[in-house]
Design a protein around this nucleic acid. Structure first.
Lengths: 338, 338
DNA sequence: CCGGCAGCTGTTAGCGGTAACACTAGCAGA
DNA sequence: TCTGCTAGTGTTACCGCTAACAGCTGCCGG
């Protein structure tokens, strides 16, 4: 079998359908797009012909002629994160009704890669762009700004949006968590996170966290970073490392739920008193947590809601301000005492 | 702030760059695509002009004129599955070098939705299509068959591909797992899975599983299905339900690792002797398992490899047969005795 | 009986690029 | 000197579709 099916005939065009149904190409175009008045019998003839020929319209030509593209670019750092799939769900749920279609690009947290992805996407002249984060290369910002389409930056609002931003304040989220932890009486607090220089949101959370600590006269007792591998396993390992280095630590703040879950499993396996002897907290509010033996404290990131709001802005279903702030709720779970 | 940035000037075209740099549009086009001979000084002038103007080429026009589109359609049932993101990673890793770009469409396991997604994608005239599964509507199959581009169906090879298939035999995988379980001496076996009439691969695994059971004179003692919610939690709940209904059950076969992990956590929490009193197994080999207190038996689905092979076929880097079978390895972990 | 208009269909001229070819200058070799 | 070639550049004709407008019919009211 050959690699590509050898075309029996050159690809079908409107002309083929028009000849098969005995009307002009324009009329076929009208029927296929449900636009303009076409008599019922003509419509039937055309649809019949298109169906039997197996005609699939060429959107490239259509888009060029009409100067309209029903695509929305979505640029996110990663798919394996559990968090972006949910954002996508929110986006799709809104876009589904509108004839707009999301197109996903993944950057792996690399700014240059992001720039390339944005460039590629813009070259298809989408109707709008949804991009995770507020930090981009200068070139990327410039391209976006002059694209003449609505740009929505999501997840974060601590910064200056190009056009619109929909998200939460990670700095505030970090601060809130720290305050809750301090209020619960924990004092020897360690941070465990991802080694990702370009995960600006995690960085902002940590900043807010430390800010609140220092306001209370505290500072982090220890910090541990990882990269790659099974997050759950890394959570275990990092937790073991921190606890052996600093047995007096009484709270573990994780940069995401997955490593937090690993840490929780480790602590429970060690027979540590959670949350009495030691407390834990993560971030994101992933549904995985529901299945754990004990509920990890976390803060949901409003992922679904962010996706929906962003899509509504693109679809013109919302009249947005420059920043749309959402407010995550602290879920104390069973791993913060009090 | 208005919704769309008001265009200060109509979008830039080749003509603008050509005028700014004093050469013909054709020459600009050549420079921007690195094609044909252009003198170094001219090239510089053009690049300079393009850069300062902030020109982004219009791929729609380019694709129409050249009849070439650097897009590869990827159609998958779900993103929240942990398994497809890894397939995507495999695809991207190969495509990255080739100038080809994946475009993802999600079907949510709905055949009609799949048909729509395929239609939409084909209307952009991609260079190839990668589609999960071998089961499609007749219309979808017909469209794909006459698209005149390479079509690679992935994940599964139990069936008849349109063009090429890359995957594993889920029927065989189910059979192998059953054989291993029986050989280990388990006899009262229950199945726990997703309630998804259109997850044909899970269905095939179960078929193979039951086939091997009946060959050994056994049959499933119980079965339990779920849909929606946190898979980990559902795994717990289903396991509890099965064990309370049939306390004599000595093996739990899960249709995926996530619910298997939930079940494992439940069994351990109940103080059950795993794998002595009761064994467990899942499917997929997700890396999450590495972080569990005990390693769940599973079978990896060769996801990365499948993505790579499929992409190689599309990119013309492999000369494939009709079916490329990969062979998953059984990982016994710590939840099958012996 | 005519103007006006709605309903339907066709014609024309692009959309913004690129393939294919045409052209020019400069230079090597006969 | 002339041919032949190459490197560099421009010209032309589309790619497949749609916006905009131009008919054509039949029917209405005045």
């Amino acid at each position: 079998m050959s690699r590509t099916t050898p075309d029996p005939r050159p690809t079908l065009t409107l002309r083929d359908v028009s000849e098969a149904s005995g009307v002009s190409e324009m009329t076929v175009s009208r029927v296929l797009r449900n636009r303009g008045d076409v008599s019922a019998p003509t419509r039937e003839k055309v649809l019949e012909a298109a169906r039997t020929l197996g005609y699939v319209p060429n959107k490239i030509a259509g888009a060029l002629a009409s100067q309209r593209v029903n695509l929305v670019g979505v640029v996110i750092p990663s798919l394996s994160n559990m968090v972006f799939p949910e954002v996508m769900t929110g986006i799709s749920s809104v876009l589904d009704g509108t004839g707009l279609q999301p197109v996903v690009g993944v950057t792996n947290y690399l700014p240059d890669r992001e720039e390339t992805v944005i460039y590629e996407m813009l070259s298809w002249r989408p109707s709008g762009m949804i991009i995770a984060g507020l930090e981009h290369t200068d070139a990327a910002r410039a391209m976006l700004a002059r694209a003449g389409i609505p740009i929505v930056e999501i997840m974060d609002i601590d910064g200056t949006p190009i056009n619109h931003a929909v998200g939460i304040s990670h700095r505030r989220a970090g601060r809130q968590m720290a305050e809750a932890i301090i209020a619960a009486g924990y004092r020897k607090i360690a941070f465990l996170g991802t080694q990702m220089p370009n995960d600006f949101r995690a960085k902002k959370r940590l900043e807010g966290f430390e800010e609140a600590l220092s306001k209370a006269g505290l500072s982090l007792v220890d910090r541990e970073y990882y990269s790659g591998g099974s997050a759950l396993l890394k959570g275990r390992e990092m937790t073991a490392a921190v606890l052996s280095r600093n047995p007096e630590v009484d709270f573990l703040y994780y940069s995401n739920d997955m490593i937090g879950a690993g840490g929780l499993l480790y602590c429970l396996a060690q027979g540590l008193d959670v949350p009495g002897r030691i407390g834990l907290a993560g971030f994101n509010g992933v549904e995985l947590l529901d299945g754990l033996p004990r509920k990890l404290a976390t803060m949901d990131a409003c992922r679904l809601e962010i996706g929906k709001k962003a899509a509504e802005i693109i679809a013109g279903k919302a009249t947005p301000g420059e920043k749309e702030e959402l407010f995550p709720t602290l879920q104390r779970g069973d791993t913060i005492r009090g």
